[in-house]
């Protein structure tokens, strides 16, 4: 097999002659480990080989299994998370509407009590919640 390496947009090139049996082995090794031949060629031509401990097949299988488990768990959680997220968005909107109503009613109560010379009620808890639901965090679904 002739491997012709060209510079992009240029006539310059370098050619390598690779025996067919070696080329077949390269293709086999790529297929076995899930790489494309052009990726292997870039390693051969540019990146070079990595020295070090070769991970054993059991360890690779263990990670693959763990990835499958994580993907499954994530998929299941997403299935529960998305509907709950929308449900809570509408709950927050409902409470926001109630907060708007109450805000007006509290203002009226304060005004009436003042006009009648009555002591003011403590609305601190309600006012805190009103601020919470009126905050921009509920303008759209929480990410």
């Amino acid at each position: 097999m002739k491997v012709v390496v060209r510079a992009r947009g240029s006539w310059r090139k370098v050619t390598f002659k690779v025996p067919d049996e070696v080329w077949e082995r390269i293709k086999e090794v790529c297929k076995k480990h899930g790489f494309r031949v052009d990726e292997a060629l870039r390693i051969i031509l540019l990146d070079g080989y990595i020295d070090g401990q070769t991970p054993d097949d059991d360890e690779i299988e263990r990670i693959k299994k763990r990835i499958d488990e994580l993907e499954k768990e994530l998929y299941e959680l997403e299935g529960k998370w998305s509907p709950l997220r929308f449900k809570m968005y509408y709950s927050a909107l409902d409470n926001q509407n109630l907060a708007i109503q109450l805000s007006g009613m509290i203002a009226e109560n304060k005004r009436l009590r003042k006009m009648l010379g009555l002591p003011q009620r403590d609305f601190s808890k309600a006012e805190e919640l009103i601020r919470y639901y009126m905050s921009s965090a509920f303008g759209e679904p929480k990410e």
Binding site: M1, K2, V3, V4, V5, A7, R8, D20, D38, R42
Partner: peptide, 8 residues
Amino acid sequence: MGKVEIEV
């Protein structure tokens, strides 16, 4: 002989 090209 076959030929394969790669751009760099």
